[in-house]
């Protein structure tokens, strides 16, 4: 098993993908956090709306800070998910799956090795995203004269949960890749779902009375819940789960996708 995990880690580390995606993640997070912190804290100066001053918008300073530190998860989770998915779909795309299965004919073990090998990369992505997000976010808050809450240990707990959330997203990505081993389709679905479908659903569910509770169980919301606040819930689109419940829900998505992938991969011919 160690040999299989070593092989999977080397597969990820020997191409450019992991750092290209990682660098993109840092840039995307820095940009989104800067834009949102700026628009929330300087809204009145910009004259966007007379009442969207921080206090007037109903945020207490602590919620605002937590929401800012959740942004790397809300806007960055597609990156570890894509890395995880490509860890499987890339093997089919480049036909390396042949040699991979020659070296490890036990396909269940191969999927397990991939799920484990992605964890250090997910952690690295989580660290990059949260460090970038906290630097830019705290900088923006301080510039606007808001409290950063970085002297509060429980805030650092939330930030650490953000690292965990992004790591779980990498694992979910591996599951998705196993369930849908077509690289183009899985990337289109991931980008479409994370950037378009889920944000719309979360806003829409907020306005539909019977579905209001359901939006908390969407995967993106579950990931946000791990940090304890969300840009989307701040936009009045439903409550979040408790951090550990969010972790459980997100991990369940990953396990369901992996189970589907396991059934698919263990039964399919590689020809």
């Amino acid at each position: 098993m160690i040999a299989a995990i070593t092989a999977e880690v080397r597969k990820l580390s020997t191409t450019r993908l992991w750092w290209v995606l990682g660098a993109s993640l840092a840039v995307a997070v820095a940009f989104m956090v800067a834009v949102i912190v700026f628009s929330f804290t300087f809204a009145d100066e910009l004259g966007m709306s007379g009442s969207s001053d921080v206090e007037a918008s109903g945020f207490d300073p602590r919620t605002l800070a937590t929401m800012v530190y959740s942004l790397p998860v809300s806007f960055g989770y597609v990156f570890p998910a894509i890395l995880g998915a490509i860890a499987i779909t890339g093997e089919y795309r480049h036909r390396t799956i042949d040699t991979t299965l020659l070296m490890e004919p036990r396909r269940s073990r191969l999927i397990a090795a991939k799920l484990i090998a992605i964890v250090p990369f997910g952690l690295a992505y989580g660290l990059v995203a949260m460090v970038t997000g906290v630097l830019v976010g705290a900088g923006g808050l301080a510039l606007a004269g808001e409290e950063t809450f970085l002297d509060d240990p429980s805030m650092w707990g939330s930030i650490a949960m953000g690292v965990v959330a992004l790591t779980v997203w990498a694992v979910v990505g591996v599951g998705l890749g196993a369930a849908l081993p077509n690289q183009v389709i899985v990337i289109v679905i991931l980008v479409g779902w994370t950037q378009l479908v889920e944000p719309i659903l979360r806003l829409a569910f907020g306005f539909i009375e019977p579905l209001q509770g359901a939006s908390a169980y969407l995967p993106g919301a579950a990931g946000d819940a791990m940090v304890g606040a969300s840009f989307y819930s701040a936009m009045d689109s439903g409550d979040l789960l408790a951090p550990w419940a969010g972790f459980a829900v997100l991990l369940t998505y990953g396990l369901i996708a992996s189970a589907v992938g396991w059934v698919r991969m263990t039964r399919r011919d590689v020809s």
């Binding site: 040999a3 070593t6 191409t15 480049h94 991979t100």
Partner: peptide, 26 residues
Amino acid sequence: VGAHFEGAFHPGRSARDHLRVYASQA
């Protein structure tokens, strides 16, 4: 058994890295 089928390489990986990936399992 050593087996090889056509075209089983990642284009972005070097020849040595391609082999190093599988070295632990072999």
